Amino acid sequence: MDHILIIEDDINIAELERDFLQLNGYKSDIAEDGEEGLKKALTGIYDVIIVDLMLPKKNGNEIIKEVRKKFEIPIIIVSARTEDIDKIRGLDFGADDYLTKPFSPAELAARIKSHINRYKRLKGTSNNTQEIITRGGLEISTSSHRVQVNGEEVQLTSKEYSILVFLAENPNIVFTKDQIFEKIWGGEAYSDTATVPVHIQKIRKKIEKDPSNPEYIETLWGTGYRFKAFTLR
């Protein structure tokens, strides 16, 4: 049974989320403040973390930042903040998704299912053949879901990893942000194409020596993005 952590100081909302998720077959725990939430999140027992931004003791972005230092599991922000800057900041700290209050519990459950399924596919190790994509100092192991730059492992979210692998597996092909969005987010109508440049920027910060002059993922202004040629061994 997949295990969900709900970090939410409004107990009525937290219990609504918990009860609905339990009806849908998920085990759920609640933390009512940021410090308790971070402590539970860092135990590593959860498959998805749902976090509000406005929390007592420690805010949601601080929690996301700390969790991302250790884990790649899906993180979904559920917040009353509707400004684009809040969404962009949350994604920049490492969240995978953003849901605005008020929301449908059914939509939340659908998003959780989608993220868990994608994460499990990315982490799957049933194929013992080790495929490694290399380009300069960048190394991507598609069987173990590991990314290294100059021998040091970097932590990517599931969406960041999916974008990087998609581009790397199609070198020298230019993809528009609409095409990338359709490939990575698919039928997730609750997202929008504006999230693609945000994720590209986050990937560059993690893998590029100079994100403003990228070695791996190029921007073709007015067209889209392209991954420079690589070797496969």
Rank of each mutant, 00 (worst) to 15 (best):
T193V: 15
F175E: 02
E107A: 10
K101L: 04
A109I: 00
D96R: 03
Q201L: 10
K209Y: 09
E218K: 14
V154T: 08
T129H: 11
L164R: 02
V174L: 12
T219E: 09
R121V: 12
N150F: 11
F175H: 04
D92E: 15
L156E: 05
A110F: 04
H199M: 10
I207T: 00
K228M: 08
I207V: 10
G224P: 01
T231G: 09
V196W: 11
K228D: 07
S104E: 10
T142C: 08
Q148T: 15
T231V: 14
D92T: 15
Q130H: 07
D178G: 13
R146I: 13
Y216R: 01
H199A: 03
N213I: 13
L91T: 06
E182H: 08
K202N: 14
R121Y: 12
E169Q: 13
T231M: 07
G90H: 02
E188I: 06
F227T: 02
Q155L: 14
P105M: 07
G136S: 10
T231L: 11
K123A: 13
H145G: 02
N170C: 03
I173M: 12
Y190D: 15
L220Y: 09
E218F: 12
T223S: 09
K183Y: 10
P102H: 06
E218V: 12
G186F: 03
